[in-house]
Amino acid sequence: MTMSDWSAVTRPIPVPNELTRPFWDSARQGVLALQRCQACGAFQHPPYATCVKCMAIDLKFEPVSGKGAIYAYTIMYHAGDRRFAAAIPYASIIVELDDAPGALLAANLLEAPYTEAKVGRRVEVVFEPLNDDITLPQFLLARDTT
């Protein structure tokens, strides 16, 4: 059995701040939106006060498709974070979206054996509500691999 059991994990709940609130507001509505520089067009994540490419401060959150590839991953075998002890081993992944090269999102690979995590594997976003306010973007193996 190589599926991680998430049922007994209580995930820490993100606390939005001035920079990050639009990300979480969109996620709650089932939309993945990332910060985009209106001057040079670059996406970035996590959100930041200025564009890390060109220093512009005109940044807006824009929806992205939610399709991408695993940029990197680790499989956790050690319950260093005791809140996740029930799920080990589990795959924590870093996703690079097709629409937002260079912006890297952390997530878990859900509904697949953790051994399916591989660099370059196609994934797509899915939304996991934690409570009424916060919904986590997560990723599944892409159904359509093209």
């Binding site: 994990v9 209580t10 995930r11 820490p12 709940i13 993100p14 606390v15 939005p16 701040n17 990050t20 994540h45 996590p46 956790m76 260093g80 974070d81 005791r82 809140r83 996740f84 799920a87 589990y90 924590s92 999102l105 952390a106 997530a107 878990n108 934690l130 986590l136």
Partner: peptide, 20 residues
Amino acid sequence: LPGTHANGPTQFTAPYGFGG
């Protein structure tokens, strides 16, 4: 890493079990 919430930069990592 106790606690029920993830503040600051950890809000994008801790909910996914990135602990250290």
